[in-house]
Design a protein around this nucleic acid. Structure first.
Length: 268
DNA sequence: ATGGTTGCCAAGCAA
């Protein structure tokens, strides 16, 4: 049995609980990382996850906005709920579990979207996003041979040309501006992280994990972006056996604008 | 060039 990890920006865990239950029933990941739960910890639907077989629940949520949660079928230790940019938003949660003889540190991230105007001088939300990504440089992938790290989440940046439907038309659109994509790459390489989606899918192939709610027909226009990511430390990257991007979930009833990304490893 | 949708929670704000 492989180790399966899923990540999904759910855009309200309470409103879309039936969709989460459907994902768990169909995919049966060992661990599910959610972002934008929009749910204070005291109101998180823990019981529904326990009933689905996910008895190990780690939450870091707040009222109305943001929020991350990591749900697991195997024992999970909460490591940290980290604050970035000295702002008390719920955007990070790290946990640890054991698989294949490795103690694996799992980071679950929700990076700020950054607002509409891609100018840090006039848009403080964009400034915050750039600062947040810069601060993520301090999270290293490697911790020695006996351990490994995985980093997943909605990172709200589509770094490469074929991570967006039109590279040229998105160069001035927040999520794909050069200052973001360069900062993103600098952060990933500084930490020593491997982009597991692009390890499997060739760079010249279009890959999206998000489609705007504003499109009249998201499937027809297919103007997507790859905003959700799965990274690992180099020592377990060769153990990745597959990536599944559950595009169908964008067509489910009352969907999230993001779809689940599932990574499978040859580790037990 | 503009406006297009959604969720939270009850008016805008954030995405």
């Amino acid at each position: 049995m492989p180790l399966t990890i899923a990540t999904w920006n759910i855009n309200s865990v309470r409103l879309r609980l039936p969709l989460v239950q459907r994902l768990l029933a169909e995919i049966r990941p060992d661990i599910l990382c959610l972002q934008e739960t929009k749910c204070p910890d005291a109101l998180f639907p823990v019981e529904a996850f326990v009933e689905a077989g996910y008895g190990h629940v780690a939450v870091h949520g707040q009222k109305g906005y943001h929020g991350v949660a990591t749900l697991s079928r195997r024992p999970l230790e909460i490591v940290e709920r980290r604050m970035f940019c000295d702002i008390d938003d719920c955007r990070h949660l790290s946990t640890r579990f054991v698989a294949g003889g490795h103690a694996i540190l799992l980071h679950n991230f929700y990076v700020p979207a950054g607002g509409d105007e891609p100018d840090p001088k006039v848009n403080r939300k964009f400034r915050h996003k750039l600062d947040f990504v810069a601060e993520m440089r301090g999270i290293p992938a490697a911790h020695g041979d006996a351990s490994a790290s995985i980093l997943v989440g909605d990172l709200n940046i589509a770094p490469y040309e074929h991570d967006v439907w039109s590279h040229k038309q998105l160069l001035k659109v927040v999520s794909h501006t050069p200052v973001e994509t360069e900062g993103f790459e600098a952060m990933r390489t500084a930490g020593g992280w491997v982009d597991l989606i692009r390890q499997i899918i060739p760079m010249e192939e279009k890959v999206y994990t998000w489609w705007s709610y504003r499109a009249a027909d998201w499937r027809l226009s297919d103007r997507g972006r790859r905003l959700d990511h799965v990274w690992s430390s180099p020592n377990i990257a060769p153990r990745l056996s597959g990536i599944e991007i559950l595009r169908d979930a964008r067509g489910w009833d009352r969907p999230s604008d993001h779809v689940p990304v599932i990574a499978r490893f040859d580790l037990d």
